Computed example of a mutant assay.
Amino acid sequence: MGRVIIIPEESDDLWMLYNIINPGDYVTADTSRKVHHQLNDGRNTTASRVRLSVHLKVTCGDFDKDSSTLRIQGRNLEPNGYVAVGSFHTLTLECNKPFELHKKVWKQDVVEALQERENHEVCPDAELAVTLFQQDHAEIYLIGKGVTAMVSKVETSSSSTEGRKSSSSSPSSNTTKNVFFREVFAEFIKYVDLNKVKNTVIASEDSKKDEF
Protein backbone atom coordinates (compact mmCIF):
# COMPACT_ATOMS: atom_id res chain seq x y z
CA MET A 1 0.00 0.00 0.00
CA GLY A 2 1.35 3.42 -0.95
CA ARG A 3 0.46 6.75 0.58
CA VAL A 4 0.90 10.43 -0.20
CA ILE A 5 0.41 13.58 1.85
CA ILE A 6 -1.71 16.05 -0.11
CA ILE A 7 -2.37 19.75 0.52
CA PRO A 8 -5.08 20.97 -1.87
CA GLU A 9 -4.56 24.63 -2.77
CA GLU A 10 -7.66 25.48 -4.80
CA SER A 11 -11.13 24.24 -5.67
CA ASP A 12 -9.88 22.44 -8.79
CA ASP A 13 -7.56 20.36 -6.61
CA LEU A 14 -10.52 19.18 -4.52
CA TRP A 15 -12.51 18.37 -7.66
CA MET A 16 -9.60 16.29 -8.94
CA LEU A 17 -9.39 14.49 -5.57
CA TYR A 18 -13.12 13.79 -5.67
CA ASN A 19 -12.51 11.92 -8.91
CA ILE A 20 -9.53 9.86 -7.73
CA ILE A 21 -10.54 8.96 -4.13
CA ASN A 22 -12.49 5.73 -4.44
CA PRO A 23 -14.40 3.41 -2.09
CA GLY A 24 -11.86 1.16 -0.40
CA ASP A 25 -9.16 3.85 -0.24
CA TYR A 26 -7.95 5.14 3.12
CA VAL A 27 -7.93 8.79 4.20
CA THR A 28 -6.32 10.16 7.36
CA ALA A 29 -6.94 13.76 8.39
CA ASP A 30 -7.26 16.00 11.42
CA THR A 31 -10.73 17.08 12.41
CA SER A 32 -12.54 18.48 15.43
CA ARG A 33 -15.43 17.24 17.50
CA LYS A 34 -17.63 18.89 20.09
CA VAL A 35 -17.45 17.06 23.42
CA HIS A 36 -19.93 17.58 26.26
CA HIS A 37 -18.74 17.39 29.86
CA GLN A 38 -21.02 16.99 32.85
CA LEU A 39 -20.51 19.52 35.63
CA ASN A 40 -20.15 18.62 39.29
CA ASP A 41 -23.80 19.37 39.99
CA GLY A 42 -24.74 16.38 37.83
CA ARG A 43 -27.38 18.33 35.92
CA ASN A 44 -25.66 20.85 33.67
CA THR A 45 -23.08 20.25 30.97
CA THR A 46 -20.42 22.29 29.24
CA ALA A 47 -19.06 21.78 25.74
CA SER A 48 -15.58 22.08 24.27
CA ARG A 49 -14.12 21.29 20.86
CA VAL A 50 -11.21 18.85 20.68
CA ARG A 51 -8.80 18.12 17.84
CA LEU A 52 -8.29 14.53 16.74
CA SER A 53 -6.96 12.48 13.85
CA VAL A 54 -9.33 10.10 12.07
CA HIS A 55 -8.34 7.21 9.79
CA LEU A 56 -11.21 6.19 7.49
CA LYS A 57 -11.80 3.43 4.99
CA VAL A 58 -13.70 5.35 2.32
CA THR A 59 -17.25 4.41 1.39
CA CYS A 60 -18.24 7.51 -0.63
CA GLY A 61 -17.46 11.18 -1.22
CA ASP A 62 -19.32 14.38 -2.03
CA PHE A 63 -17.91 17.58 -3.56
CA ASP A 64 -19.56 20.93 -2.77
CA LYS A 65 -18.41 23.48 -5.34
CA ASP A 66 -20.10 26.40 -3.54
CA SER A 67 -18.08 25.95 -0.35
CA SER A 68 -15.07 24.33 -2.08
CA THR A 69 -15.09 21.37 0.28
CA LEU A 70 -14.85 17.63 -0.23
CA ARG A 71 -16.66 15.42 2.27
CA ILE A 72 -15.32 11.89 2.63
CA GLN A 73 -17.46 9.30 4.42
CA GLY A 74 -16.23 6.00 5.76
CA ARG A 75 -15.65 3.71 8.73
CA ASN A 76 -13.13 4.70 11.37
CA LEU A 77 -10.34 2.12 11.65
CA GLU A 78 -8.34 3.42 14.60
CA PRO A 79 -9.41 4.24 18.19
CA ASN A 80 -8.91 7.83 19.28
CA GLY A 81 -11.07 8.23 22.38
CA TYR A 82 -13.91 10.07 20.65
CA VAL A 83 -14.81 8.08 17.52
CA ALA A 84 -15.42 4.36 18.01
CA VAL A 85 -13.68 1.83 15.77
CA GLY A 86 -16.06 0.70 13.04
CA SER A 87 -18.37 3.70 13.35
CA PHE A 88 -19.15 5.90 10.37
CA HIS A 89 -17.61 9.35 10.26
CA THR A 90 -17.34 12.20 7.74
CA LEU A 91 -14.12 14.10 7.10
CA THR A 92 -14.25 17.50 5.41
CA LEU A 93 -11.25 18.17 3.19
CA GLU A 94 -10.52 21.85 2.52
CA CYS A 95 -7.96 23.97 0.74
CA ASN A 96 -4.64 24.36 2.57
CA LYS A 97 -5.47 21.51 4.99
CA PRO A 98 -3.12 18.50 4.66
CA PHE A 99 -4.32 14.90 4.69
CA GLU A 100 -2.99 11.45 3.82
CA LEU A 101 -4.36 9.31 1.01
CA HIS A 102 -3.61 5.57 1.03
CA LYS A 103 -4.29 3.29 -1.93
CA LYS A 104 -3.58 -0.41 -2.28
CA VAL A 105 -2.92 0.11 -6.00
CA TRP A 106 -1.91 3.42 -7.58
CA LYS A 107 -3.03 3.50 -11.20
CA GLN A 108 -0.89 5.38 -13.69
CA ASP A 109 -3.62 7.89 -14.57
CA VAL A 110 -4.07 8.77 -10.88
CA VAL A 111 -0.33 9.34 -10.42
CA GLU A 112 -0.24 11.50 -13.55
CA ALA A 113 -3.24 13.55 -12.35
CA LEU A 114 -1.50 14.27 -9.04
CA GLN A 115 1.74 15.22 -10.78
CA GLU A 116 -0.10 17.52 -13.17
CA ARG A 117 -1.80 19.38 -10.30
CA GLU A 118 1.50 19.61 -8.42
CA ASN A 119 3.13 21.33 -11.39
CA HIS A 120 0.10 23.52 -12.10
CA GLU A 121 0.59 27.27 -11.69
CA VAL A 122 -2.64 28.68 -10.27
CA CYS A 123 -2.66 32.03 -12.04
CA PRO A 124 0.36 32.34 -14.37
CA ASP A 125 -0.72 35.74 -15.74
CA ALA A 126 -1.50 37.33 -12.37
CA GLU A 127 -1.32 41.11 -12.45
CA LEU A 128 -2.72 41.84 -8.99
CA ALA A 129 -2.37 40.27 -5.54
CA VAL A 130 -5.04 40.99 -2.92
CA THR A 131 -4.76 40.29 0.79
CA LEU A 132 -8.19 40.53 2.39
CA PHE A 133 -8.40 40.52 6.18
CA GLN A 134 -11.64 39.20 7.66
CA GLN A 135 -12.58 39.10 11.34
CA ASP A 136 -10.86 35.78 12.09
CA HIS A 137 -8.83 34.98 8.99
CA ALA A 138 -7.08 36.40 5.94
CA GLU A 139 -7.49 35.43 2.29
CA ILE A 140 -4.87 35.91 -0.41
CA TYR A 141 -6.00 36.18 -4.04
CA LEU A 142 -4.20 36.30 -7.36
CA ILE A 143 -6.06 38.10 -10.15
CA GLY A 144 -5.11 37.79 -13.81
CA LYS A 145 -6.71 37.77 -17.23
CA GLY A 146 -10.17 36.38 -16.55
CA VAL A 147 -8.93 34.45 -13.50
CA THR A 148 -9.41 35.13 -9.79
CA ALA A 149 -7.90 32.46 -7.55
CA MET A 150 -7.75 32.27 -3.77
CA VAL A 151 -4.31 30.78 -3.17
CA SER A 152 -4.27 30.80 0.63
CA LYS A 153 -6.46 31.21 3.69
CA VAL A 154 -4.82 31.88 7.06
CA GLU A 155 -6.84 31.61 10.26
CA THR A 156 -6.01 33.35 13.51
CA SER A 157 -4.97 31.04 16.34
CA SER A 158 -8.02 32.16 18.33
CA SER A 159 -10.58 31.52 15.58
CA SER A 160 -11.00 27.89 16.61
CA THR A 161 -11.49 28.71 20.30
CA GLU A 162 -15.18 29.07 21.09
CA GLY A 163 -16.35 31.64 23.54
CA ARG A 164 -12.93 33.17 24.04
CA LYS A 165 -12.89 36.89 24.78
CA SER A 166 -9.92 39.16 25.35
CA SER A 167 -9.11 42.82 25.14
CA SER A 168 -7.75 43.87 21.74
CA SER A 169 -5.02 45.83 23.52
CA SER A 170 -3.91 43.08 25.93
CA PRO A 171 -0.36 41.67 25.57
CA SER A 172 -1.67 38.20 24.69
CA SER A 173 -3.94 39.66 22.02
CA ASN A 174 -1.08 41.66 20.50
CA THR A 175 1.17 38.60 20.49
CA THR A 176 -1.51 36.53 18.76
CA LYS A 177 -2.01 39.27 16.18
CA ASN A 178 1.72 39.51 15.46
CA VAL A 179 1.96 35.74 14.95
CA PHE A 180 -1.05 35.92 12.63
CA PHE A 181 0.52 38.73 10.59
CA ARG A 182 3.79 36.77 10.25
CA GLU A 183 1.87 33.74 9.00
CA VAL A 184 -0.01 35.88 6.47
CA PHE A 185 3.24 37.44 5.24
CA ALA A 186 4.86 34.00 4.91
CA GLU A 187 1.92 32.82 2.79
CA PHE A 188 2.04 36.01 0.72
CA ILE A 189 5.69 35.61 -0.27
CA LYS A 190 5.10 31.89 -0.87
CA TYR A 191 2.42 32.46 -3.51
CA VAL A 192 3.10 35.96 -4.88
CA ASP A 193 6.05 36.40 -7.23
CA LEU A 194 6.80 40.11 -6.96
CA ASN A 195 8.95 39.90 -10.08
CA LYS A 196 5.74 39.21 -12.03
CA VAL A 197 2.97 40.72 -9.90
CA LYS A 198 3.42 44.48 -9.93
CA ASN A 199 0.34 45.55 -7.95
CA THR A 200 -0.87 44.56 -4.50
CA VAL A 201 -3.90 45.51 -2.42
CA ILE A 202 -4.32 45.03 1.33
CA ALA A 203 -7.89 45.49 2.54
CA SER A 204 -9.98 45.07 5.69
CA GLU A 205 -13.05 46.57 7.31
CA ASP A 206 -11.10 47.41 10.47
CA SER A 207 -7.54 48.56 11.22
CA LYS A 208 -5.79 45.30 10.29
CA LYS A 209 -4.77 46.62 6.86
CA ASP A 210 -2.89 49.50 8.53
CA GLU A 211 -1.39 47.37 11.30
CA PHE A 212 -0.16 44.80 8.79
Rank of each mutant, 00 (worst) to 15 (best):
Phe181Ser: 05
Ile72Thr: 01
Ile6Arg: 09
Ile202His: 01
His37Phe: 15
Ala186Trp: 04
Ser53Ile: 05
Glu187Ser: 11
Arg33Leu: 15
Pro79Val: 03
Ser68Arg: 02
Ile21Pro: 00
Lys208Thr: 09
Val105Phe: 11
Val110Arg: 02
Val111Trp: 03
Glu121Pro: 02
Ser172Cys: 02
Arg51Ile: 08
Ser167Gln: 08
Ser68Met: 01
Lys208Leu: 13
Val85Cys: 06
Met150Tyr: 01
Phe133Tyr: 13
Thr28Leu: 10
Asn96Arg: 14
Leu142Met: 11
Asp193Lys: 03
Gln73Ser: 07
Asp136Asn: 11
Lys97Ala: 13
Leu101Cys: 11
Asp13Arg: 07
Tyr26Gly: 06
Thr69Lys: 14
Glu205Ile: 04
Val192Trp: 00
Gly144Phe: 05
Lys107Ile: 06
Ala138Lys: 08
Gly24Pro: 09
Ala203Met: 13
Asp66Arg: 10
Asp210Arg: 04
Val85His: 03
Lys153Trp: 00
Val201Cys: 11
Phe99Ser: 04
Asn19Trp: 00
Lys65Val: 09
Thr90Lys: 10
Trp15Ile: 07
Lys97Tyr: 10
Glu94Asn: 06
Lys57Cys: 10
Lys103Met: 04
Glu94Arg: 14
Gln108Glu: 15
Lys165Leu: 11
Tyr191Trp: 13
Gly74Lys: 02
Ser170Gly: 07
Lys190Pro: 01
Leu14Thr: 03
Lys190Ile: 01
Pro8Asn: 11
Thr92Ala: 04
Leu39Met: 11
Glu118Val: 04
Thr46Leu: 04
Leu132Phe: 11
Ser68Leu: 01
Leu39Ala: 07
His36Asp: 13
Gln38Glu: 15
Asp25Glu: 07
Ala203Val: 12
Cys123Pro: 00
Pro124Leu: 10
Glu78Tyr: 07
Thr176Gln: 14
Arg182Pro: 03
Phe212His: 03
Ser53Pro: 00
Ser53Met: 00
Ile202Trp: 08
Arg43Phe: 14
Ser159Ile: 06
Val192Pro: 04
Lys208Gln: 12
Thr175Cys: 01
Asp13Ile: 00
Thr200Val: 12
Lys177Glu: 12
Thr28Val: 15
Ile7Thr: 15
Gly42Met: 09
Ser68Ala: 13
Ile20Phe: 04
Leu77Phe: 06
Phe99Cys: 08
Ile202Glu: 02
Asn44Ser: 14
Leu128Asn: 03
Leu70Gln: 05
Val58Glu: 09
Leu128Gly: 03
Lys34Thr: 14
Lys103Ala: 06
Glu112Thr: 14
Leu91Pro: 05
Gln115Asp: 11
Tyr141Met: 04
Ser167Tyr: 06
Leu93Glu: 07
Asp62Thr: 07
Phe181Asp: 09
Thr45Val: 09
Val105Ile: 13
Thr161Val: 15
Lys97Cys: 09
Pro124Cys: 10
Asn119Asp: 14
Tyr191Gly: 01
Ala126Gly: 08
Glu9Asp: 06
Asp13Ser: 05
Lys198Val: 07
Lys103Glu: 10
Val35Ala: 08
Ala84Gly: 09
His89Met: 02
Arg49Lys: 12
Asp109Ser: 09
Val83Arg: 03
Ser173Trp: 15
Ser32Pro: 00
Phe99Arg: 07
Val111Pro: 00
Cys123Asp: 10
Asp206Glu: 09
Thr45Ile: 04
Asn178Trp: 02
Asp64Pro: 00
Glu116Pro: 00
